[in-house]
């Protein structure tokens, strides 16, 4: 089974545990400035929305890379950056429609979510279940179920 990150913003409290977990996994320090997942707040914190790479099936970053530094991990389905190949040209950052692949000036390479090799630390750290790691084919399952529960609500004869 391939899995995807499922993000449910209505559960997010903007605590940034996900950003710290991400930077700790990839950079070895707690450093939200280097996180590949970011939480955005709107209207004085009324809404908080975690956002990161969705691992597009038709990945524009991957197609745009001139040196083939981006490749899909066949096990996790994540598009990963080969740091030893990346030349830091940033063309992928232009190609990505969502802005979720970014240049890191310290390393001179780009960085993006790689699903931590199949055990995403943001999901593990999230205290409210706003970020979970679920079956890619059924990211909508719980939402479907919730709406389904609202339909058949007439008393039985």
């Amino acid at each position: 089974m391939q899995k995807s990150l499922l993000i449910e913003p209505e559960k997010c409290t903007s605590c940034l545990q996900c950003e710290m977990a991400c930077s700790f996994e990839h950079e070895g320090s707690f450093n939200p400035a280097k996180s590949r997942i970011k939480v955005f707040e709107f209207e004085h914190g009324r809404r908080a929305i975690p956002y990161t790479c969705t691992q597009c099936a038709e990945a524009w970053c991957l197609h745009a890379c001139p040196v083939e530094a981006l490749a899909r991990n066949p096990t996790t389905g994540a598009v990963e950056v080969k740091e030893d190949v990346c030349v830091g040209c940033k063309v992928c950052t232009i190609a990505c429609p969502f802005g979720t692949i970014n240049y890191n000036r310290d390393s001179g390479k780009v960085a993006k979510c790689d699903l931590c090799g199949g055990d995403p630390q943001c999901a593990a750290a999230c205290p409210t279940g706003a970020i979970t790691f679920v079956d890619s084919d059924w990211t909508g399952y719980e939402r479907m179920k919730a709406w389904a529960a609202k339909t058949d609500n007439q008393p039985r004869a």
Binding site: T13, Q17, M20, R46, R47
Partner: peptide, 12 residues
């Protein structure tokens, strides 16, 4: 309208 956490807080 919502619960809000401070940085790093798992209480909110």
């Amino acid at each position: 309208v919502a619960n809000k956490a401070c940085f790093g807080c798992t209480i909110a």
